[in-house]
Design a protein around this nucleic acid. Structure first.
Lengths: 123, 123
DNA sequence: TCCAAGTACTTTATGATGTAAAGTAAGCAT
DNA sequence: ATGCTTACTTTACATCATAAAGTACTTGGA
């Protein structure tokens, strides 16, 4: 209930590592797949290039959010990524803060909603 | 309803300009104050330094999300910021996408919630 | 067998940009 | 006068996302 009394919109809970488009996508993908996802899967799901994904995974591993498993499936390398327990926890904390952002914004669009400022659903 | 069939976690709707901690705070502050906020107010509400706020406001003005009004109140300069109509719209679009992120994540924590992976409330 | 093309990544380099620190300018207090 | 505060802006640095190129191996023709 305290939350930086003086700076209610500082959103300190928005972890920089997680609050990044690409990484946010990766983590959201991973939280839905406890058994992990392959490099190729993530690439497709998140619409990322190889280099881009590789780099982000590196960051996520270094910060202990994901575990990366490299093995060979037959003759080909297969990289599998999954959330660490800590990663899951930090991600859920992050999402909780996101919900707060959404709520802060929603509160207001309700308050201001009486004025015809948001275009009516149909137009 | 389409949303990049093949890359459901790309979150293209997360506008880079808005998806920045500081700016997200600024915009959330502003949407709640249709009459605008002063530089000093924003600084406090968002917990930003002068230089930092100044820079972000510049970006937000350049991209047409906020309007900045500089006048003198008595003998002192007073900078007032408010959302433009376009800014409001783009911000609401952004928030809608945020909601999607939250929902994507929430769906899953529900699905996985049966397993004792998230620490029980008390521990 | 040799070569071209594809898979599965990693490394490098560059450009953008968030941020701290310093700077400007004016008012107010002592 | 001198110093402190408000109200910013400018600069300079350091981080970092991303594209492009590179590595290594495999598969599939000719």
């Amino acid at each position: 209930m305290s939350r930086e009394r003086s700076a209610p919109y500082a959103y300190d809970g928005l972890d920089r590592v997680i609050h990044e488009k690409a990484r946010l996508g990766i983590l959201t993908s991973l939280i839905g797949h406890p058994k992990g996802l392959s490099f190729a899967d993530l690439k497709r799901l998140c619409g990322l290039t190889d280099g881009n994904l590789s780099r982000h995974l590196q960051v996520l591993e270094e910060t202990g959010l994901v575990r990366i498993d490299k093995r060979f499936e037959g003759k080909r390398p297969l990289t599998t990524c999954r959330l660490t327990p800590a990663g899951r926890e930090r991600f859920l904390d992050y999402v909780a803060e996101l919900e707060r952002v959404v709520r802060d914004a929603a509160d207001v669009s309700a308050r201001v909603g009486s004025e015809p400022m948001l275009k009516p659903r149909g137009a």
